[in-house]
Write a protein that binds this DNA or RNA. Structure first.
Lengths: 244, 244
DNA sequence: CGTGAGCTTGACTTGTTTCAACCAACGTGG
DNA sequence: CCACGTTGGTTGAAACAAGTCAAGCTCACG
């Protein structure tokens, strides 16, 4: 049979620490919250996953709270006829399922884009830590608010903007989030997304994504080489989405 | 100058109690949480607002937590060039701004559709009640999960469905939410939305909304008379959104 | 070397927007 | 009371954005 292997030559380095440090990194916060507690309280479990794999299915409940440490993932929803919408991209340091904290069913599936490394914390411990530590609750509320904010932006994008605006805003938003994590080199960043990821996130077809990106390249706005993306004209790109 | 009056012949009845009782009604929950507490703890303030008025602006912070008791409102985001996206419709019993609980800036504006009655609770008290009562925290988490769920559905709708599907799913979702509140009479419900509200929520133009609704009427799916909407063929409408 | 995943390009079709005119209902102010 | 302006809805024709279909390309893998 033809090649079914998912991600051939990858070796995932061991242990956290690759998890970038930034405001509201749950991995950091929970690890710190475990200090001075009984031995196995909040003890994380380490996991890895291959690219393109579905990690959590929609509607499922988890008894551990997962935090992404390395690699890119996406949360998505698929209609019965196969149409797919990517709700958000998960970057290192992101909580992978906020509903898991309260044992509620997940509203969307989580899928690996690249090979991943992630940790899971026992739900009961997380819940206890949150209800005892006001700072943790405040952080959780900031994460919630952030997600709501993002969801609202996604809604305006999908509902009220054209294809070029959507793709531009997607790239800009990713760039900002990566910058916060110190994962950019100047205007260049690691960019493992295939065009079909962009299509499913922007709510347009793969073919059209190709056209839009080609247009951007011709206009000297962005440059994509292999798995790296460079924003050659940040101001121009921002002008595309109407944010001068 | 011509008539600037907003809602001519409305009289808003006094006091809560119109607030429908259903799972996760914050108004109820907070009122119950105030029982057996010092006199002014969690004491609500009553408010009214006229239809079409903006109640809270995007980016603002509130020191009181608002809960809608009567009437319909919408949360919306407007682009600099005037394009508008309605994120969600607020129905009686809904928390009007979940970020207000933690004093975080609102990601969207809140606008009255009909004349409204709503109550606000002091933020500090709400926060204290939540951190002391696990049941309240659990309820908040359910509300938040519900909103995330809704946001995800909105994203699929806007990103991956056509106009007719979007409008149908909008009507169905509203009908379900009203049913939960006991605000429907059979398949008929009070429906104060104008076509431009539907347009801004579904991410299409007013003209096109008119076309889609006319098509629904011709197909015998829904009937709109004045301010009442009847789903004449629920199964048929569900079939439109691909949910048999 | 063969295969499949991913990207590019072009021609054609479809869905949605835009523009425009028109009507009905309603309040308002002369 | 009537004439007027506004809001909300309806309809049709033309313009446009995006989708679909199809072919050809590269490249990494097995």
């Amino acid at each position: 049979m033809p090649h079914r292997k998912q991600s051939p030559k990858t070796d995932i380095p061991p242990s956290c620490g690759a998890c970038p440090s930034f405001e509201d990194n749950m991995c950091d916060a929970l690890t710190r919250a475990a200090a001075g507690r009984p031995p196995h309280f909040l003890e994380p479990r380490e996991h890895t996953a291959l690219g393109r794999r579905i990690i959590y299915r929609v509607g499922g409940t988890l008894d551990r709270v997962p935090v992404l440490c390395q690699g890119w993932a996406a949360t998505a929803l698929t209609l019965s006829d196969g149409r797919r919408q990517i709700i958000s991209f998960l970057l290192p340091g992101d909580l992978m399922s906020s509903t898991s904290i309260f044992g509620l069913p997940s509203p969307c599936s989580v899928e690996a884009i690249t090979d991943l490394r992630y940790r899971t914390f026992p739900r009961a411990d997380v819940r206890e830590a949150i209800s005892q530590d006001p700072a943790l609750l405040a952080m959780l509320s900031r994460i919630w608010a952030d997600q709501a904010n993002l969801a609202d932006q996604v809604a305006v994008n999908l509902g009220r903007r054209g294809a070029t605006e959507r793709v531009a805003s997607l790239i800009l938003r990713l760039s900002q989030r990566l910058q916060k994590r110190g994962m950019t080199q100047g205007q260049t960043m690691d960019f493992p997304l295939r065009q079909h990821h962009i299509a499913d996130a922007a709510g347009i077809t793969v073919v059209h994504v190709g056209n839009v990106l080609a247009e951007f390249r011709r206009a000297g706005l962005v440059e994509i080489n292999g798995r790296a993306l460079t924003i050659t004209d940040p101001a121009g790109l921002r002008r595309v989405v109407g944010m001068p």
